[in-house]
Amino acid sequence: MTAARALRERPPGQGQPWPWLLPAVAVLALFYAIPVLDVVRLAFSDATLIAPATGLSLDAMRAILGDPALRKVLATTAIFVAVNVVALQLAGLSIALLIVRGERRGLKGMAAFRTLVLAAWVVPGIANGLIWGLLFDEAPYGTLNSLLGYAGLGPVAWLSDPRMALVSAVIANLWQGTAFSMIVFYAARRGIPPVLYEVAELDAAGPWRTFRSITLPLMRRAIAVNSVLVSVQTLNTFDSILALTGGGPGRATEVLALFTFNTVFYNLDLAGGAVLALLLFAAGMTLTLLIGWIGRDRGAS
């Protein structure tokens, strides 16, 4: 009775966290840690899709890391992720600020505009690839090329030219991913106290100065979080590329996630796929730590 009362009367911050954390830790261990450990085990095995592992070996690791195609795939992945992460932030931030400004001015249709942008986000990756495949179609009756033709431009080799195909894959990913960045930035921007903007207005600060001195610093944490999320999302992208180009022409648009998929389902190489999955995991973790470090809080000043 006394103990129960003492427990009830324990001041905030001095409770036992474990009883509360245990269920979450158990779920994470069951559904995340165990599969990840199994992937590590497979990476050091000779398992294929048609035969189970017969023992431990470094063969898969050596074969995959020594594969000449891997360098090209990693380069493509680096370009795809870097361009997307920067562009997604810029596009998401621009749209979020546009919506907030529109709402402040009482413009009609802002909610509809927000919904419209969000609609792209709910489209599955495969459908996204198919939609853009139709738009980029290079046939004489292809949508985008026909529109360009009316303006006396083009045609553009959207998907058949290796360099342009990567640009097209970035455009398709941007169209779908911008909505997510927009939501994060919209929420962060709405969280900034309006009084700060009122003060800036009283001080006759211009829009750029207001953005640089108020909006950007107060959204830094949101930008860091969003950078991590979109980096990992983009790194794991393969479904929209699979539907759009299949990774081609050649290997022009084959990113690491798609290469992993192909290694498992074309080569039937489960161990090799596990090595690539670990590489993907390491790349995601490195990006997360790097962005976390760059966006770390450097003190109150």
Binding site: D161, G250, R251, A252, N262, Y266, N267
Partner: peptide, 14 residues
């Protein structure tokens, strides 16, 4: 898979 890559590279002049 390799034939697909090969043809893509040859036909696109890579």
């Amino acid at each position: 898979n390799q034939i697909q890559i090969l043809l893509g590279n040859v036909l696109s002049g890579t």
